[in-house]
Amino acid sequence: MTHEQRTGPVRPPTPPHPDRPPTAAHDSLAELSARCAAWLGAERDRIEGELRAAYGKPPGTAVKEQHPAPDSVPPAAVPLIELLDRLAGLAGDPPAADGPVLDRVRRGVVAALTASGVTPVEDTGPVDPARHHVVATRDDPSGLLSDRIAETVRPGYLWRDVLLRPQEVVSYVPYVGPRPPRAEAERGRRDAR
């Protein structure tokens, strides 16, 4: 006779509850779902509060919707934004004679986006995580430009007050100085003993 035949089928362990120790009683799926949703909501609020404190936003400031309903955005916006990205990638490749042509096409695409209510975001100044996506960093030896935009890699786009795509930026970070190679650091520790 096997262990399973003597004791019955093996049940999976009960998941632990963050607010109380595990018990033998099983909660219903609805209760577990409600607790998880409450915990996720509290975590979101905590993280949002930390970000607001770090970037100087008052706690009552409303956060704008990051992803609008798909039917509300002009249908031509996404293909036009993709075309602008492709044109930006071609800017250095064509012969000099094509430069004015590409610039004219780019201005036409931007005008079409603007007519549909979409505006480019090319901010300067402090990095705002709600509007900017940091893709790289650059040292700031002066210490005066930390957490500010050094350059724009790709512009972002707004439709009305809704962010369609965040601006991709390079951000300044505090300069920490050169670090000694690992072998020199090890030698320095041995000499200090």
Rank of each mutant, 00 (worst) to 15 (best):
Y55A: 02
E151P: 04
R160Q: 15
R107S: 12
R6N: 05
Y55C: 01
G125L: 03
P16E: 07
P155A: 08
R107Y: 04
E43T: 14
R46T: 12
V134P: 00
T152N: 04
P75V: 11
D191C: 08
A54Q: 08
A91L: 05
P58E: 10
D93R: 12
T137Y: 02
P16C: 05
A185L: 10
P21F: 14
P166T: 02
R104D: 08
V63I: 14
R148L: 05
H3C: 14
L80G: 01
P15M: 01
H67I: 06
M1P: 13
P12Y: 07
R86Y: 08
Y175A: 13
E151S: 15
S116Q: 15
P129A: 11
A112I: 06
P74A: 01
R154A: 04
E186T: 13
E122N: 02
D103W: 01
R165Y: 04
P178L: 06
P126Y: 02
V73M: 03
P21H: 13
D27K: 15
A112V: 07
G143I: 08
P178T: 10
R46G: 05
W39C: 07
R154C: 01
P68M: 04
E31I: 14
A62V: 10
P75L: 07
D19M: 10
L144Q: 14
T61Y: 09
P95T: 06
A192P: 06
G56I: 10
K57V: 09
A91H: 08
L87N: 06
V109A: 14
V110K: 11
G99Q: 11
V63P: 03
E82W: 01
R104P: 03
T14D: 09
E50C: 11
A38T: 11
T119S: 15
A185S: 10
P70I: 00
H132E: 02
R193I: 07
A62L: 10
P174T: 04
E184N: 01
D98C: 01
R189T: 03
Q66G: 12
A25H: 13
V173A: 03
G143Q: 12
V176N: 08
R160C: 06
D45L: 02
A96K: 03
A76P: 03
V170T: 03
Q5Y: 10
E50N: 07
P75I: 07
A54L: 12
T114H: 12
L87F: 06
C36F: 13
P68G: 14
R190L: 15
K57S: 12
D103V: 02
P95K: 06
M1V: 11
W39K: 11
P58V: 11
R182P: 09
R154Y: 02
R190A: 14
L84G: 04
E184G: 00
G56R: 08
A30W: 06
I149S: 00
P74I: 00
L113F: 00
A136Y: 01
D123I: 00
W159R: 06
V105P: 02
R160Y: 05
H67L: 11
T124G: 13
V121L: 15
V110I: 15
V135D: 01
P181G: 06
Y175W: 12
R154H: 08
P180I: 09
L113I: 02
A115M: 12
D93L: 13
S146Q: 13
V121P: 01
A30R: 08
